[in-house]
C-alpha cells in the first residue's frame, strides 16, 4: 500500500481517494432521488381531497428545532473531521458523539411531528398531499436513522483500531453523507415547510 504523507490520512492511498470520489458520485444519485420526490411533492401539494393542507398541520416550533439540531450537527461533524486531520482521536470521537446525539434529537422531534400529523388526521392514506409529504419526510428521516447506526459503528471502529488510513477514510465518507442530509433538509425546510406556511 503506497501511502502519500503529504495528503490528509483519509486520502493517503489511491484506494482511499477513489472511495471518496465514488461516494461523491453516489451523492449525485441521491440528489436525483430527492429531486423526484420534490417533483412529486410540488405536483401533489394542492391535491388535498378531504384532508388538511400544509398550512393547517405544519408547526413552526418543532420544524425550527429540527433545523437547528441538524445544522449544528453538520457543523460539529465538520469539527470532528478537522480534529481527525490534526490526529486528535479523543476530540474527534467527542465531536462525532455530539453529532450523533444531535442527530438522535432531530429524529426524536421528527417522530413527534409524525405522531402529531396522525393525530390531526394526516396519515399516509388521507390524501395525495399527505402521502407525498410523509413519503418525502420519511425518506429523509430513514436516511438519518441509517446514518445514526453507520456513525455509531464507525465510532466503535475508531475506538478499537485508532486513526488509520482506513478508519479515517470511513469517517470522512460518513461526514460527507451527514452534510448531504443537512443539505436535503435545508430544501425540505425551505420548500415544504416555509413555502407551505407562507
Amino acid at each position: 500500500m503506497k501511502v502519500d504523507n503529504s495528503l490528509p490520512l483519509e486520502y493517503s492511498t489511491e484506494e482511499n481517494s477513489l472511495k471518496i470520489l465514488g461516494f461523491w458520485i453516489f451523492l449525485g444519485a441521491e440528489i436525483m432521488l430527492f429531486a423526484t420526490l420534490f417533483a412529486a411533492y410540488f405536483t401533489l401539494e394542492n391535491r388535498l381531497g378531504n384532508g388538511p393542507s400544509g398550512a393547517e398541520i405544519f408547526e413552526i416550533t418543532p420544524v425550527l428545532v429540527e433545523t437547528l439540531l441538524l445544522l449544528t450537527s453538520s457543523f460539529v461533524i465538520g469539527l470532528g473531521i478537522h480534529a481527525m486531520r490534526l490526529g486528535n482521536k479523543k476530540a474527534m470521537m467527542i465531536f462525532f458523539s455530539i453529532t450523533l446525539l444531535l442527530g438522535a434529537g432531530f429524529l426524536g422531534f421528527e417522530i413527534y411531528e409524525f405522531i402529531h400529523y396522525v393525530h390531526v388526521g394526516a396519515t399516509l392514506q388521507t390524501s395525495a398531499f399527505t402521502a407525498i409529504l410523509l413519503t418525502t419526510l420519511g425518506t429523509h428521516g430513514l436516511h438519518v436513522t441509517f446514518g445514526l447506526f453507520w456513525g455509531l459503528f464507525i465510532l466503535i471502529q475508531i475506538k478499537k483500531r485508532g486513526l488509520t488510513p482506513e478508519t479515517a477514510n470511513k469517517s470522512f465518507i460518513f461526514s460527507l453523507y451527514w452534510h448531504f442530509l443537512d443539505i436535503i433538509w435545508i430544501f425540505i425546510f425551505s420548500f415544504i415547510y416555509l413555502k407551505g406556511m407562507m
Binding site: 461523491w24 451523492l27 449525485g28 444519485a29 436525483m32 429531486a35 423526484t36 420534490f38 417533483a39 410540488f42
Partner: peptide
C-alpha cells in the same frame, strides 16, 4: 462536474414536472 450534473438533472426533473 458530478455535483453540477446531479443538480442539472434535479432541476430538469423538477421544472419539467412542474
Amino acid at each position: 462536474t458530478n455535483i453540477y450534473y446531479g443538480i442539472l438533472i434535479a432541476l430538469v426533473t423538477i421544472f419539467g414536472t412542474l
